[in-house]
Design a binder for these strands. Structure first.
Lengths: 244, 244
DNA sequence: CGGACTGTTGATCGGTATCAATGCTCGTGG
DNA sequence: CCACGAGCATTGATACCGATCAACAGTCCG
């Protein structure tokens, strides 16, 4: 554990968005954490139907949750950014019904699942945080369901870019309307439930309307107001959130 | 509280699917519950953006969670059945980002939100249950996201009928391949992200293929195997679940 | 009886998928 | 160093799924 990040000095915890923990809680988290895992882009972190003994949080990097049909059609459910919990479903329900794959090289904090019960017994605040995180994830999924069900590809894409931008910004990973996107248009397509071909056309249209500019690996929001109007996106007030 | 159901005699708790609580927990729940609310079909239980002071559980009846865009397009996120928690997001995140409407006449158990903190402090098992319920809801939403993003209207409808059947069956509200559906085809359409017109045609096609029969308010599954194959649905082993 | 609501059916339109060809970047090996 | 192929993105042509518009039937209820 020499070269690993100590929870007490976790760089994420200095960010505004995250609630501060008291020493007792932080001490427990530090003991709860059993190590770090570094994964390469494209590698599988958790596999559907497996029952992983671990719970993770992302310390650095991006990942995505996804799920697929037997014939191979795949849907990206959501992206996971630093501070996000990975594997809560497996930890609580003891079965994973989706996979998680690293998008970039990523560092994960590894927690041992069998200590989660201690967490619930001794740390009501942290238990609350667990529920909080689950409820928030649910809220995001609700938003995406509305998107997939009701928005057109264009609106949906606009919405998603704003969504990702706001999440990244809160973590200091975006700013000045520029989002450094570590994924290709194919990934966006899979998240939008459209084909890569159509994603390309959709992005082009957003570009032509002067709303965004997507160069290499950064997405620039050129006219947030009109982009929001198109998407009927409303940024929710960034509330401070807990982090395990 | 004379004519109300006492938690100790709650008819739901005798069902196989629900985990048993010990007396201490049950006693707390009974004190946590402040009353019952009876709502008529179509009435709003929770409204988006409001911050309701209540947390509910459905004792009897059906409801649905939904969310809409400014221009009126509406998506049904999920249906809620007896034993399901309503308003967890409001209770934990202090803002509701979706509405909940009663589908049938329904009886709700009302809990006071400010006691939820006591629950986390004194009842680790119940705290775990909260997280469990949130994680399970998340899992269902994941499934629906896959549906909306990747399945065709036909597959999606097949999937959803099976999904609802299984949930209802666990509660004794369906059996013998017959699901008593207290909603119209319009509601199904809103859940599927398609128009009522297309829902009608889709159901007709499922009927023609001999997979289902939808008469009045009951849906009969006539060939579960082929319906499952079409939907690429896999019923998850009905695990016992907690109930608040 | 008439009106509202839900569902059905047909005709046509539009959004997105599919198929196919091309260009591009990049890493690899000759 | 260049040739090559793999993977990703773009563009065009066409096909299809589901939306939209419109008319009508059935049921419920005042």
């Amino acid at each position: 554990m020499a070269d690993q990040t100590k929870c007490e000095q976790c760089p994420l915890r200095t960010l505004e968005v995250f609630r501060k923990l008291d020493d007792k809680q932080l001490g427990f988290i530090a003991r709860f954490k059993t190590g770090e895992l570094i994964v390469e882009p494209g590698s599988t972190i958790l596999l559907e139907e497996n029952n992983s003994p671990h719970l993770y949080t992302i310390l650095e990097g991006w990942a995505f949750r996804h799920k697929q049909l037997e014939d191979g059609r795949r849907q990206i459910l959501n992206f996971a950014l630093p501070g996000d919990l990975i594997g809560l479903q497996a930890a609580i329900l003891s079965e994973m019904q989706h996979s998680v794959t690293a998008l970039t090289r990523a560092t994960l904090c590894v927690f041992q699942r069998d200590k989660i019960w201690t967490l619930f017994q001794e740390f009501p605040e942290l238990s609350f945080s667990m529920t909080w995180l689950a409820a928030r994830e649910e809220q995001m999924l609700d938003g995406h369901l509305l998107s997939l069900g009701q928005r057109t590809a264009l609106e949906r894409t606009a919405y998603y870019i704003l969504h990702l931008y706001d999440r990244a910004e809160a973590l200091g990973l975006a700013g000045n309307n520029a989002l450094c996107a570590p994924f290709g248009k194919g990934h966006l397509a899979e998240a939008m439930g459209i084909t890569p071909v159509h994603a390309s056309r959709t992005i082009k249209k957003l570009h032509e309307r002067g709303l965004i500019r997507w160069t290499d690996d950064t997405i620039l929001i050129r006219d947030r107001d009109r982009l929001q109007a198109l998407a009927s996106f409303e940024s929710d007030p960034t509330m401070r959130r807990p982090m395990i």
